[in-house]
Write a protein that binds this DNA or RNA. Sequence first.
RNA 1: GCCGCGGUGGCUCAGUAGGUAGAGCGGCUCCUUGGUAAGGAGCAGGUCGAGGGUUCAAUUCCCUCCCGCGGCUCCA
Length: 629
Amino acid sequence: MPDESRHQVPIGEPIGKVLSAWAPTKARTFLAARFDNAPVDLSFPLVTSGSVAPVTFEDRLGKEILHHSAAHLVAKAVMEVVPDAKPTVGPGTEEGFQYDFDMRPLTPEDFEAVQSAVRRMVGLREPFGRQEVAREVALELFKANPHKLQYIHEAAPGEPISVYRTGSWVDLCRGPHVPDTGWLGGIHLLGFSAVTQGGEAGGLTLQRIRGVAFPTREELAAYLTLRKEAEARDHRALGQRLELFMFVEEGPGFPFWLPRGMVIVRELERFVMEHLRADGYSEVRTPLLFAQSVFETSGHWEHYRSDMFLSAIENRVFGVKPMNCPGSMLIFGSRARSYRELPLRLAEFAPLHRLEASGTIHGMTRVRELVQDDAHLFVTEEQVESEVRSLLAWIEQAFSTFRLSWSYELSTRPKQFLGEPAVWERAEATLRRCLDASGVPYRISPGEGAFYGPKIDIHVKDSMGRSWQTGTIQLDYQMPLRFRLEYQGPDGQLHAPIVIHRTILGSFERFVGILLEHTAGRLPPWLAPVQLRVLPVGERHAEAARALVKELFALGLRVELSVSEETLGKRVRSAELDRVPYIAVLGDRELADASVSLRLAGRKEAVTLPAKELRERILDTVRRRAFEA
RNA sequence: GCCGCGGUGGCUCAGUAGGUAGAGCGGCUCCUUGGUAAGGAGCAGGUCGAGGGUUCAAUUCCCUCCCGCGGCUCCA
């Protein structure tokens, strides 16, 4: 037993029975068990001695088992709705589960029918019965389903082939499973879609049903509430509602920043620019278009052409730049360079165009035109480490300002790479050292680096736990060679610089999208398009309100007057919906003693404070780039 | 790009078993002069995504295209 106690039980006693006897109060949470650490069903009969332990939803394994059982239940339901569907695989996922079927396209009606079948089957409490069968028996059992036959053929020769029986439905499965379908009361189907088998173009089209499952209906309800809140935070809806940005049919993936959205972009740029100045960067602007030959030199022509916008002008082909690097390379190479100039840090915030696949563009988080807080650092090998450390420090400062938590991913040498393995190893070791020193968690993605060098990607999780890549730090040993870049070192010899391609926020488009979802549109005051809205109670207070607005505007604040003929309640509501962080009300009471009634967006209560304090509070919060509370 | 599903006033949506459309919010006008999330009335606003086909007649049925949504793949 987990508590080191030893028990003697009759031969063939199910492990579940032994565990419930051992911990009767917790027995309801036991989904499966471990016998000598191997996952087994609760019905697993004990015939030899060994260690036993329960598996609950709190364990990673327990989640997986519940999810997996839920997937099987869905398969059973699908078979009832569309009898000639051929189930393929139904794994658990990070969030829940999915099951892919080789079948005709699902319709919304099918999906409804599957949902109600699932609900009914939960009520039946049918057991998941395990059975180990000979390979020949399995082949016979699944002869109508070529996918399952393939899995049987792929199974290792010694491996036992197990099937699970649920009512009349039999599925090939390693298990284990929860004891019966009654354990799946917290199941919920999220949706269906078509996917390509193996993820490769031209593969077989499968129908995927996705869902989530929890041990109890209460946990499911909590999840659904959270999910509903997340949907209300969708940056596409917020962007429209708050008039931050828009798209038109004629420009798929090309964002329009509307006046209010542009305020956010400019404030973010200012935030980044202040840092660049402090850290010794220079800013440049290079052309948006280059002749084909530049991209041939940079390698884009070979590796990225299909993602570029091209245009033929005067019998030459020009490409719209998808990245800023070629321009910076040309600047570095425009004259002889000395080691005394390094590190040379060139920042460029130019519009980039990338012909992203049409099916992938998504609001602001995936667009075809974007601007990054981009820079290229020309450094010596000895300077790489201090530059990367400085970048990691800046990332910490930046993301903390936005109250975003982040993690790093280190991508190492891919199969196809250029350069010397020894150089790669030194570079990877340097990056790892920097990451270790940062104290921020990171994971390593072996073989995921670019062909020209290893990289660190920055991932930010939004409030729903979805992960997004924002910034990146990429070491590049190749592009300087391709552009024949050199500097003269203290030894009098010419050397190729190393280039660090880096962005911190990534693209302003994606970053604003993430920030909106993270804050539900309640941006910190320094970023809010309108920081303060002044609401005079009645007409006779309008003049004083106007004076307050004028005063705060002169101090550089973004402030509006709300003097419509609507009731005060209506105007407060509008200000709340517009996500204005400070809502100031002026009436008789306030005019009497030069005070203001201040309501913070998202809170119910208002506080009354002297006008002078209001001004200082707002200015201070904005200057510190702080959140209100 | 691939698969599936959609596209009706500015927004969110209803509707038409083929006979050219409605609501709420928003906008405008008027009344109301308000005390912290919706005061009242009236008015304006739509070639029902685009093109083609079938039909006496198409927003509705069929085809093609465009755009969007959910996934796949890819990535800032």
